[in-house]
Amino acid sequence: MNGPAGGPVDGPGDDPLRVWRRLADTAVLLDGFHALKHAVRFGAEVPVAVTADRAAALALADELAPDVRDRFVDLLREIPEETYRTLVPRPHPTAVAALAVRPSRAAQLTALARTPRTTPVVVLDNPRNLGNAGAVIRLAAGFGATGVVTTGTLDPWHPTVVRGGAGLHFATAVERLEVADLPPGPLFALDPEGDDIRGLKLPDDAVLAFGSERSGLSTELRARADHLLSLPMRPQVSSYNLATSVAMTLYHWSMGSF
């Protein structure tokens, strides 16, 4: 029997380090207790999970995530702390790490393109900051958005983005696309010169686009936008953080849904 990468399925008695080394180059790194918790909650396939302190990790599950505690019992394998530190670029305070199978691109594109749509898609146009991208994915998952699309070179599944998203990539669709291939729906782009967002109700099938932290919207995306919108801001304040802008916009959308 073969696993998702075409290799053998790993059983509970397999050496977790052997499994880790076999999958590390292709799997999604789940860095920390909360990333693993969310991934498990939202159905991620997790072939291997390790910790430097199994008792402490299970105590956290008892306290913060009793709904997935049994899965943690099955998944978590204890390894020496010095070994754990060799597996992750930045050791997490919870000393938990896991590898998950990345959803197929075909499945992600199907989810993004499905209509009719009852929640927006968030587009990050050529984002630069990995942590900001992760925070946006966490926000989108919290609001139940259909997905998050990035344009440009940033990989939305980069380990730093997944860490910033606390494993909530598995709670929404996350993919990188060209501007020409964005999901269907009316495209609302945030821009300082746009109309005040408070004067408009955002439809459930909206595509909400946000420019990069440094240069704003690309010429290509601006040209495709159906509407330019601005967030209320005090004069002489330059801008909001990207994740803050997304949070404000999704909140405005959600209030219109009641």
Rank of each mutant, 00 (worst) to 15 (best):
N2D: 06
N2L: 13
P4N: 05
A5R: 13
P8K: 03
V9I: 10
D10M: 04
D15P: 07
D15M: 05
P16F: 08
W20P: 05
W20M: 08
W20S: 05
R21P: 05
L23N: 00
A24E: 15
A24K: 10
A27H: 14
V28A: 01
V28Y: 01
V28H: 03
V28F: 03
L30M: 04
F33G: 06
H34D: 14
H34N: 08
V40C: 06
R41A: 11
A44E: 03
A44H: 06
E45G: 02
E45N: 05
V48M: 07
V50I: 14
R54F: 12
A56G: 03
L58K: 00
A59K: 15
L60V: 00
P66A: 00
D67G: 13
V68W: 03
R69W: 02
R71I: 10
F72S: 02
F72H: 01
L76T: 02
L76G: 03
R77C: 11
I79D: 03
E82A: 15
T86K: 14
L87Q: 14
V88K: 05
P89W: 11
R90K: 06
P91V: 00
H92A: 12
P93G: 09
V96W: 03
R102L: 04
R102M: 07
A107R: 13
Q108K: 01
L109Y: 02
T110M: 07
T110C: 09
A111T: 14
A111I: 04
A111R: 07
A111Y: 02
L112Y: 07
L112F: 00
R114I: 00
R114G: 02
T115L: 14
R117M: 06
T119G: 08
P120L: 05
P120R: 04
P120H: 05
V123Y: 04
V123I: 12
D125R: 11
D125K: 04
D125Q: 12
P127W: 00
R128A: 12
N129C: 08
N129D: 15
L130H: 08
L130V: 10
G131D: 08
N132L: 03
N132H: 09
G134V: 00
A135E: 02
L139W: 01
L139A: 15
A140Q: 07
G147A: 13
V149N: 04
T151W: 09
T153E: 13
L154W: 01
H158F: 11
P159Y: 05
P159L: 12
V162C: 13
L168C: 07
H169K: 07
F170C: 01
E175V: 07
L177N: 07
L177E: 02
E178R: 13
L182T: 02
P184L: 10
P186I: 05
F188S: 08
L190Y: 11
L190G: 06
L190T: 14
P192T: 08
G194W: 08
G194V: 10
D196W: 09
G199R: 15
G199D: 15
D204W: 04
D205P: 10
V207Q: 11
G211S: 03
S212H: 02
S212C: 09
R214K: 12
E220H: 15
L221P: 04
L221Q: 03
R222K: 15
D226L: 07
D226E: 14
L229P: 10
M233S: 10
R234L: 13
P235D: 14
V237G: 04
S239L: 09
A243T: 08
A247G: 15
T249V: 14
S254D: 11
M255V: 12
F258P: 01
F258S: 09
